[in-house]
Deep mutational scan, measured.
Amino acid sequence: QIFVKTLTGKTITLEVEPSDTIENVKAKIQDKEGIPPDQQRLIFAGKQLEDGRTLSDYNIQKESTLHLVL
């Protein structure tokens, strides 16, 4: 699982696999929060994550925290 922290300070927990794409993660966030993926920007280690890449591409491991910017 990974954590996604929103600007409001809320933390969302997501069940993911390293092979999941960023697009996939955004879809999971939409399921939980109702935020359309095209409004979501995910930041990890100061980098904006691209939809077509996977979590493992960015070396995002379990218990990692991503930041969600709208």
Rank of each mutant, 00 (worst) to 15 (best):
I2P: 00
I2S: 01
F3K: 06
F3Q: 05
K5Y: 08
K5G: 04
T6V: 10
L7D: 15
L7S: 15
G9N: 06
G9E: 04
K10V: 08
K10P: 05
T11N: 06
T11E: 06
T11W: 07
I12E: 01
T13W: 07
T13C: 13
L14V: 10
L14G: 00
L14D: 00
E15M: 14
V16W: 12
V16Y: 15
V16P: 01
E17H: 14
P18E: 11
P18D: 10
P18W: 15
S19V: 06
D20S: 07
D20G: 03
T21S: 08
T21R: 07
I22N: 01
I22E: 01
E23G: 13
N24A: 15
V25H: 00
V25S: 00
K26R: 05
A27P: 00
K28M: 12
K28N: 04
D31T: 10
K32Y: 07
E33S: 11
I35V: 08
P36F: 06
P36L: 07
P36H: 14
P37L: 15
D38G: 11
D38C: 15
D38T: 09
D38A: 11
Q40V: 10
R41F: 15
R41K: 14
R41Q: 14
L42P: 01
L42G: 00
L42M: 03
F44K: 03
F44D: 02
F44P: 00
A45D: 15
A45L: 12
A45G: 13
G46N: 06
K47N: 09
K47Y: 09
Q48W: 11
L49E: 00
D51G: 06
G52D: 11
G52T: 09
G52F: 12
R53M: 13
R53N: 11
T54A: 06
T54D: 03
T54Q: 07
L55E: 00
L55Q: 01
S56M: 15
S56I: 10
Y58S: 03
Y58F: 04
Y58T: 02
Y58A: 03
N59R: 07
N59W: 04
I60D: 01
Q61L: 11
Q61T: 12
Q61Y: 09
K62C: 08
S64Q: 09
S64Y: 10
S64D: 15
T65V: 15
T65C: 10
T65A: 04
L66R: 01
L68H: 01
V69P: 01
L70T: 10
L70S: 11
L70Y: 11
